[in-house]
Nucleic acid binder design. Structure first.
Lengths: 231, 231
DNA sequence: CGCCCAATTGAACTGCATCAAGATTCGTGG
DNA sequence: CCACGAATCTTGATGCAGTTCAATTGGGCG
């Protein structure tokens, strides 16, 4: 499938959980020279919706969700970030979305906007690094639009699982353990929790996934375009 | 509403249609030094899905749609680009989406990937310009995810119209004329053409929009969060 | 061991897709 | 300038995927 396809990154190594980053795995030294590390508890906020800040971040360990709360109380998850990925990009001075840790002890690196932009001006490799982070963010968002816009609920859940298990695969053995809950998946795909559950059951019956526990999952089969696309 | 809100750009002036770009309105001279101009007919391709190319572009006049054709034949429009906006950002060597002109005589500026990146290395202001284009692309995509994920069909159409009329407003008098068809709107929002039409009718009856013709529209009212969000 | 939140399953309802048929607009050529 | 044809747009009727409401089970952690 095209959607939720992993970018062919030249750097597949992901630092192990709860370990300080090894030089070169996530960001080059120059980038890190202006950064500082933060360690977050589960559901702790990195920044809040409508807050005034414009710093950028990357994930070292754990997972981050960017989300918006609508007036009706509905939550939409815009993006889920895994180790090695950048987030928080904005051109405004205030936040349109909030961001919080999904997993316990999620570790992130923070880059103050002014300083990182100044650094980019003097060091082209930093500018390229930032661009690469932006482009990957764009690809994740595009992939999500594709999935949310065109697929049936079964297809959405399968595409989501395939994409995230792929991104998680390098750091884990067989069977990835999802950092996100069914509620997160629902709010990401714009469907209800119940529909997500039914999709899990259905996908398991069709032999496309295997569950070793609610959060422990293996994606075995390739998506069937006929069955998964809308009608 | 938060979604589909226009970025507070420092440069609101949009070049008039069918006129060669005036210095400084769209991209600074340094950026343009490696660019070339293309003029496209309606529905003419800028690049095709799965094609091997990675150049970047900006719209001078008219409108561009980025889209994907799914295996089942369904078309998903990822983004619609108006004058002053950048598109075609990819970190891969091949295209995940196609791009084509929406309006007749759409004019774009093309930036060869290698040369523009080289230029960015030597000129920080070019790098900043590119980042700004990326960040705006990210904001458009985020806005769309928000709309497609959480809203009822009526809300989707209203948010779409409010956003695009706002973006078009600066170059037109009162009542913007949409470059896109009902089919485009449907494929962008992931709903059927018929539902788009019914939404137009409903919005008109509620006094939220006024139609001077099928494509000539004025958005009069602010969206009612209670009526427009899902249930 | 017991509490609480996450996950699952069932039943009824509804918004939207689909199918079908007109109405309108626009481009093109006479 | 008008006439024709082909898109584009609009409205109606029916069916179904997914939501909502409700209840039960399961797992993790104190």
């Amino acid at each position: 499938m095209l959607q939720f396809q992993r970018p062919t990154s030249s750097d597949e190594t992901t630092p192990p959980l709860r370990t300080l980053p090894v030089t070169g795995t996530v960001a080059p030294d120059t980038l890190r020279s202006v950064a500082h590390i933060r360690c977050l508890k589960r559901n702790q906020e990195v920044f809040c919706q409508d807050e005034c800040s414009d710093d950028w971040y990357s994930v070292i360990a754990g997972a981050i969700r960017e989300y918006a709360i609508q007036r009706d109380g509905r939550r939409q998850i815009i993006d889920v970030l895994l180790p090695g990925e950048f987030f928080g990009f904005t051109s405004r001075s205030h936040r349109r979305f909030g961001a919080q840790a999904v997993a316990e002890d999620t570790t992130i690196e923070c880059y103050p906007r002014q300083r990182i932009e100044g650094l980019a001006d003097s060091d082209p490799s930093v500018a390229r690094e930032i661009r690469a982070g932006c482009l990957q963010a764009i690809e994740r968002l595009e992939a999500q639009i594709l999935v949310v816009g065109t697929m049936t609920s079964l297809g959405k859940v399968h595409a989501f699982l395939a994409y995230y298990c792929d991104r998680l695969a390098s750091s884990q053995g067989d069977g990835a353990s999802l950092p996100v809950s069914r509620y997160d998946i629902a709010d990401m795909l714009g469907i209800s929790v119940e529909t997500v559950c039914r999709a899990f059951t259905e996908l398991q019956q069709r032999g496309l996934i295997t569950l070793q526990g609610p959060r422990r999952i293996t994606v075995t089969g390739k998506p069937d375009p006929v069955l998964l696309s809308r009608n």
